[in-house]
Design a protein around this nucleic acid. Structure first.
Lengths: 214, 214
DNA sequence: TACCGATATATCGCTTCGATACATCGGTAA
DNA sequence: TTACCGATGTATCGAAGCGATATATCGGTA
């Protein structure tokens, strides 16, 4: 779950933990937000698995400086001093910038393509949709359709639960349920639009979706 | 979190674990669903704390049989055999029915009234709203208003994050964000209606809230 | 000079989750 | 009749996530 998110962001550019967390909450929304207590252990797991590796620290993530030479040597210390003297405008502790490896790329594809619990788990679905552009069109369509089927079933169950309930429920619970069901209905309509768009694009591919992002 | 939900349901009637899980997913929605791996340890914690206690097993939770005599004696075994002979229609392993104690009632009130993380955590808010009828009117209004303020801030941050982003984002991520923001807007409108209703009821209490909806 | 707040990495304890094991009954079909 | 399946039910395990907290470094400011 978290691994997929990290790898997906590192695929686009090298990042350090703190920035990674910011992007996660921005990209995936405030729901499915991640704490440092999850993020740093996850980064360590990924590093131990060889999926990511630490590159040299640099303060401008948009123009990453590729790592030359070994880590932690006197040369690195020198560059660090030079960097601080050159651009002293950044405050705080030194960063640990991570980049994705070939192994990580493979792992990302596997995690993204895994069908298990991508329709029933809300966060897992949102995450996969956010990286859906890395998925082949058929898999994309399958993801959307499985999600739609799951939401339809969820809605049916929720309505059945209300009908089968003999005791009356109070105003607050009822309002909560009705609001939830309306949200699910809107989710389904939204998925319908996405599925429709997907089918149209599949009929006439390579016009918008796959435009090179530089 | 989970403790509050368990106590809230046990306040209404005595229940066993399996049924408790069903009610949780029904009442709180499929989100904030609970696994057995959380539920049973939570029940054990509550029992150890003296907030709930196991009562004698019975198969009809709507007309609970009060516990007489000690647990696990030969008399209990006899009654168990008699029960099975009398109403053998229920399948499955023997149940462990829990009831709330006075200490549990107090704990429930404390947990429900706790303001910390009831506005920023979605599940915590939903849970508290589901039991809002046990809250004094001012606390109820405060809960709704704090939640509204939080959602407004969340929406503002999400929009700011989109504006401040220099690289354009792909169709799927954009659709995900827009859909999420629309959902937040609707949540705010929904809260506005709840707040409005709350103020009306406070001006003229006890006319609609407590009327049987039958 | 001393403190505050932002940036940044890291860990601890606790809670939660998903998977699994185990147990008991009714129903069904070989 | 017996053998299996599925629903009901309690329980635990390992992994992962969370909130709180510790630690460190810098710029700004009182």
């Amino acid at each position: 779950m978290l691994e997929l998110a990290i790898l997906g962001l590192l695929k686009e550019q090298e990042l350090h933990g703190y920035e990674l967390k910011k992007r996660l909450t921005e990209t995936l929304g405030p729901l499915s937000s991640v704490s440092f207590g999850s993020l740093y252990p996850a980064l360590n797991r990924l590093e131990a698995a060889g999926a990511v590796k630490a590159v040299e620290a640099n303060e401008d993530p948009t123009t990453p400086i590729p790592m030359t030479g070994s880590l932690g040597g006197e040369a690195a210390a020198f560059r660090e001093r030079a960097r601080r003297a050159e651009r002293p405008q950044r405050a705080g502790r030194s960063r640990k910038v991570y980049g994705i490896t070939d192994k990580g790329q493979k792992l990302f594809d596997e995690l993204l393509a895994a069908e298990s619990s991508s329709a029933d788990d809300d966060r897992a679905f949102n995450l996969r949709l956010a990286f859906a552009r890395h998925l082949p069109p058929e898999a994309r369509l399958g993801l959307l359709e499985r999600r739609r089927a799951h939401l339809v079933e969820r809605l049916a169950k929720a309505r059945a639960a209300i009908r089968n309930r003999r005791e009356r429920l109070d105003d607050y619970s009822r309002s909560l349920m009705e609001h939830g069901n309306e949200a699910t209905e809107r989710d389904i309509s939204w998925l319908d639009r996405l599925i429709e768009r997907e089918r149209t694009n599949r009929a006439a591919p390579d016009t918008t979706t796959e435009a090179p992002s530089a």
